[in-house]
């Protein structure tokens, strides 16, 4: 475990906490894309199939349980919570899941390291995670007033991906045979999707104005 990896995981954890804070405390999911949250739940469900077959560390297992539990409970909150569900921007959150899921599944079936169920699912989760933020970014673009917590949530998620790239660079130079093309390319694509958001996030922060993405 290096500092970039730890910082990345903590940023990821922070993003989830910020989102849960918004949903649980303010009882609002305004500006949060249910589509993205459902895709993340699917990402973790398909990636962490090894939680029952391989033991890596207590840290690893606990974090996996946190990400699985939080992603499914966020989806539950938005769909079923009596108060929270009323704040969901259903008419704005129109991105169609299958446009992302089907190409990712096809790609995972053809481009993978090993053709086993677990490995193809793991690869599918990497491809899907890379694009899962898209419905959220589209929703942000349609939302005129992005509240602070939603902006911070997306910023923390983007920071987590950026830190993972530094983690891979570090591991490449410190560990023998650490070459993972699929993980790296999917991770870089994922981080690049945040570039535009980061630009406007820092602009709004610098000028001390409310975050707004141009349509």
């Amino acid at each position: 475990m290096n500092i970039f990896r730890l910082a990345g995981d903590m940023t990821h954890l922070a993003s989830v906490l910020v989102l849960l804070l918004k949903i649980h405390t303010i009882k609002s999911c305004a500006g949060v894309s249910l589509k993205t949250q459902e895709l993340y739940a699917l990402v973790f469900a398909t990636r962490y199939l090894d939680i029952v077959t391989d033991f890596i560390s207590v840290y690893n297992t606990v974090m996996k349980l946190i990400f699985l539990g939080s992603s499914f409970s966020i989806v539950w909150y938005i769909r079923h919570h009596r108060v929270v569900r009323r704040s969901y921007d259903k008419d704005q959150d129109t991105f169609r899941h299958y446009l992302l899921m089907i190409p990712c599944m096809l790609l995972a079936l053809f481009v993978h390291e090993k053709f086993t169920f677990k490995e193809v699912m793991w690869t599918f989760s990497l491809y899907l995670e890379a694009v899962a933020i898209l419905p959220q970014l589209v929703l942000l673009q349609r939302t005129r007033n992005i509240d602070n917590l939603t902006g911070q949530y997306v910023f923390l998620l983007g920071a987590y991906r950026g830190l993972y790239i530094f983690n891979w660079i570090y591991r490449y130079f410190t560990e023998p045979h650490f070459v993972h093309w699929i993980t790296w390319i999917a991770g870089v694509v994922q981080t690049l999707l945040y570039a535009d958001f980061f630009y406007y996030y820092f602009e709004s922060w610098k000028n001390n104005v409310r975050l707004q993405l141009p349509a």
């Binding site: 995981d9 996996k64 990400f67």
Partner: peptide, 10 residues
Amino acid sequence: CYQTNSKDEL
């Protein structure tokens, strides 16, 4: 351990 290296990530 080439295969398991990145599987320890989240």
